[in-house]
Design a protein around this nucleic acid. Structure first.
Length: 824
DNA sequence: ATCTCCCGCCATATG
DNA sequence: CATATGGCGGGAGAT
């Protein structure tokens, strides 16, 4: 400490510089560790340069470049200059690095430079915090910030005190996929929209009233829990990590990433993210300090993510002004093809229960005992943990969290959820696993992961019913993991529940199911849909919405919603949680009988089982899976649906009967909306509620396939999410644009749903399917939102986003607002 | 003034 | 108890 604390501001600042990028250079190791004090790093010649270069955060670089030079190439040169400057002028400052030089982003680059993006199995690297801190000359605290974020992405995992294992980006795809799923399950999209709405409202209104409205607003709810999403192979080791206790940066980081993955434009403003991450539940009290703190943390996370090049900073300009935001620049999430559907629907699959899947993974894990020792070490501790778990539970329960369950409590129909969520594709998974094993991949994959995996011996602790999962479990003491396989996606993830939850789950059954978010999800979905109708999902959309709709209308809508949702939300709320829990439990029991599952919020850590499987897709393709899926479809479709009805807050809002189906979503001009907004989504919900959809869905699939809309293999499950379809063909058309399978599928499914559900306009449906002129994804800096706009980026294939687009037929809503995104 | 966000105190967790 | 972790928020540099 000491040292330079408040140093001065250094003059030199030069910094700058850097260019960014990464180079991927990985390897350079760091510099010598000279010690520290003054001059610090830079001086090493080339190596340093590289470092710097690589290090510079994009943002910085961009800004700087613009300012001075636009050139890109010369980056290096610039860097040199900088250095020179330092050298020369440095008397002043050399020693002081200037704030930028100390930025987390730069530090993170340095950190990343030490390890390969894709380490070969052979190379696994271990990270010793002591070494790192020394070499990078930073305080330990900072390293934790970096590592925590990396952990959230499963790029590293902790082995023991001071020790981490470097996984690099191998797990990234799975992690992102899992996060996306979870994000979808949560109602993030909805939440985002709500927040935006509020904002607009504020604008319009005087300050005064908002309170009430706000409060109502959304239902955010839920999630306050922390849940960490884990990957299969990767372990979650360290009790601490799992130990639910911390809220932590890890969880926050994952949620933040989820926001990007579910947003259509994939641009998330800090403000919105902060609000969502905070438990929104609380009304809205400003709680400035809390908000500020959240923002600070988000900057920290954003810096690391920026270093990873997963996001970049931008500014969104609304009417109110421009706000800092970040744009996702990472890989698109896998198109898991039908996943969405599948997942959601997968109910069918579930029966098999858990099972195997995990095992597979685990297997891989087991393979590598190498680490075992460490693990074992932990192992003992784990036992303790188990004990402690109980304690935790208490805490937890008593505490805020437990909430989850509840959602059901309210109205939500319980049964429904379970089915949906629960679904374990397990079967398929098993199969898959088996296949995978056969496949060569296994070995390879196993190898990589294994280290991590290895550790878990047998899962001593996991009481969890899931055991079958077995593998997964091992690690975690406190939490019990649940594994969900996703057949389609291939990604399975496990959610760790807090002990309290866990045990419940466990209790249930073997066939446990996870629901990520029970009510919440459902709700979210619905709401999303409805919202979607109205707005575009993304920010832009929001903006538009806001603009379009007069506050009033919004208010009106919201209120109703509130009612409906409120309960659910509340459930989420901690305070209530307790009570609810009890209720929930009861219900669960009931449900259990049904089958189900528990309803949980996604509290846990998700672990995608994937990697092992990876082959998932392939697997899927494989017979079984395929077969299963197809079969399943019919079966499960309902789950979501079921949920939906409950939630359809919006509908309620609108006053439309839940069942009522509105064929089209209509966006009305603000005025009009106020007058008579109609939401269509509901229809789906209602219809789906029961399992009914299946048949229809199958039929649809059949049709689609014939038509060529869908690849033969693909089936469209009726996904609740998808629900709203745009009825109006025209508008919709746009969306499918490319007609890529992925995208289309989503749409198709939606449509199908409509058909099924509503049975409403088949014609439209078909017409809509036809490819329209492709729109492209734009990623423009300035985004104009239109409903028409292509759903998110290229990939966006999700249902959600797509949904967004729907427009009301009657009135086309023209986007009034555009958000501008500026770089730099 | 606002946006970023570094620094490091101090509560907790772990050993 | 000593350390290792990491929540958190003051307040200072950058714009």
């Amino acid at each position: 400490r000491n040292v330079l604390k408040t140093p001065l501001k250094q003059t030199a600042t030069s910094q700058l510089v850097l260019t960014e990028r990464q180079s991927d250079c990985q390897p350079l190791t760091t510099p010598p560790k000279p010690k520290e004090t003054p001059p610090a790093d830079p001086w090493t010649p080339t190596s340093n340069l590289k470092m710097l270069i690589s290090a510079a955060s994009p943002e910085i670089r961009s800004r700087e470049q613009r300012k001075q030079l636009s050139n890109s190439s010369s980056e290096v040169l610039q860097a040199k200059h900088c250095l020179q400057e330092h050298l020369l002028g440095d008397e002043y400052e050399k020693s002081q690095p200037s704030r930028k030089e100390k930025s987390l982003g730069l530090l993170c680059h340095k950190f990343l430079a030490r390890y390969p993006d894709y380490p070969s199995a052979a190379q696994k690297s271990y990270i010793c915090l002591d070494e790192v801190t020394e070499e990078l000359h930073v305080e330990r605290r900072r390293i934790y910030d970096i590592v925590n974020v990396l952990e959230s992405l499963h790029m590293v995992s902790r082995l023991a005190r001071n020790r981490y294992v470097w996984h690099g980006r191998h797990n990234l795809p799975q992690t992102l996929q899992a996060l996306k799923k979870v994000g979808e399950e949560n109602k993030y999209i909805q939440q985002i929209q709500m927040i935006k709405k509020r904002e607009y409202e504020h604008e319009f209104d005087a300050d005064g009233e908002r309170n009430e409205e706000m409060a109502s607003s959304f239902g955010s709810s839920e999630q306050s829990e922390m849940s960490f999403v884990e990957l299969p192979g990767v372990e979650f080791r360290a009790a601490s990590v799992n130990g639910r206790k911390y809220k932590s940066l890890r969880v926050m980081s994952q949620k933040f990433v989820m926001l990007f993955l579910v947003s259509t434009p994939q641009i998330v403003s800090l403000e919105v993210a902060a609000k969502i991450l905070i438990g929104e539940d609380q009304l809205e009290d400003l709680d400035k300090s809390k908000f500020k703190t959240k923002i600070r943390r988000l900057y920290d996370i954003a810096n690391v993510l920026s270093s990873l090049k997963l996001i970049k900073k931008v500014h969104v300009t609304e009417e109110r002004g421009r706000k800092p935001a970040f744009k996702w620049t990472g890989p698109e999430v896998l198109p898991n093809i039908q996943d969405t559907k599948l997942e959601a629907t997968s109910t069918t699959c579930s029966p098999p229960v858990s099972e195997s899947t995990p095992s597979k993974e685990h297997c891989s894990k087991n393979l590598f005992p190498s680490k075992g020792k460490q693990n074992f070490t932990r192992h003992s501790s784990l036992i303790k943990l188990v004990k402690s778990i109980e304690n935790d539970r208490r805490k937890i329960q008593s505490a805020p969290n437990s909430p989850v369950k509840i959602s059901t409590s309210t109205y939500q129909s319980l049964p429904v959820f379970p089915s949906t969520i629960t679904q374990l594709p397990a079967v398929s998974k098993q199969q898959l696993e088996g296949q995978s094993k056969t496949a060569e991949e296994m070995p390879l994959k196993c190898a990589l992961p294994s280290p991590e995996a290895a550790p878990k011996p047998e899962a001593p602790q996991q009481p969890v019913a899931s055991q079958p999962l077995g593998a997964c479990p091992a690690s975690h003491s406190s939490v019990s993991p649940v594994i969900l396989p996703h057949p389609h996606s291939g990604v399975s993830y496990a959610i760790y529940l807090h002990p309290s939850q866990a045990h419940t789950v466990t209790t249930y059954s073997p066939g446990f199911m996870l629901q990520p978010l029970p009510c919440a999800n459902a709700t979210g979905i619905k709401s999303n849909n409805s919202k979607v109708l109205n707005k575009t999902s993304t920010e832009e959309g929001d903006n538009q919405m806001a603009v379009a709709e007069p506050t009033k209308s919004l208010a009106a809508e919201e209120r109703p919603e509130m009612k409906s949702e409120t309960p659910s939300q509340r459930c989420l709320k901690r305070s209530q949680a307790l009570q609810e829990n009890n209720l929930i439990k009861k219900r669960r029991n009931d449900e259990e009988s049904l089958d189900t599952s528990s309803t949980f919020f996604p509290s846990g850590y998700l672990i995608p089982l994937t990697h092992c499987t990876h082959g998932n897709k392939a697997d899927c393709s494989n017979k079984e899976k395929a077969g299963v899926c197809s079969l399943q479809h019919p079966t499960y479709s309902s789950p979501i649906t079921g949920v939906i009805p409950m939630t359809a807050s919006e509908l309620k809002t609108v006053n439309i009967p839940a069942f009522h189906i509105t064929p089209l979503n209509i966006m009305l001009s603000p005025n009009s909306i106020a007058a008579a907004p109609v939401l269509s989504n509901s229809c789906l919900n209602s219809s789906n509620t029961s399992s009914a959809p299946n048949p229809s869905s199958s039929a649809l699939n059949f049709m689609l396939q014939h038509i060529g809309l869908i690849p033969a293999g693909v089936q469209v499950p009726a996904n609740p999410v998808l629900q709203h379809l745009p009825v109006s063909s025209q508008a919709e058309n746009i969306s499918h644009s490319s007609g890529n399978t992925n995208v289309q599928e989503g749409k198709v499914s939606k449509k199908m749903l409509h058909l099924v559900c509503g049975g409403l306009r088949g014609n439209n449906f078909l017409s809509s399917l036809q490819p329209s002129a492709p729109k492209e994804p734009h990623e423009p800096q300035t985004v104009t939102e239109n409903f028409f706009r292509t759903p998110g980026g290229p990939n966006s294939g999700f249902s959600h986003s797509d949904d967004t687009k729907r427009i009301s037929q009657g009135t086309l809503y023209i986007p009034q607002r555009k958000l501008e995104v500026s770089e730099d």
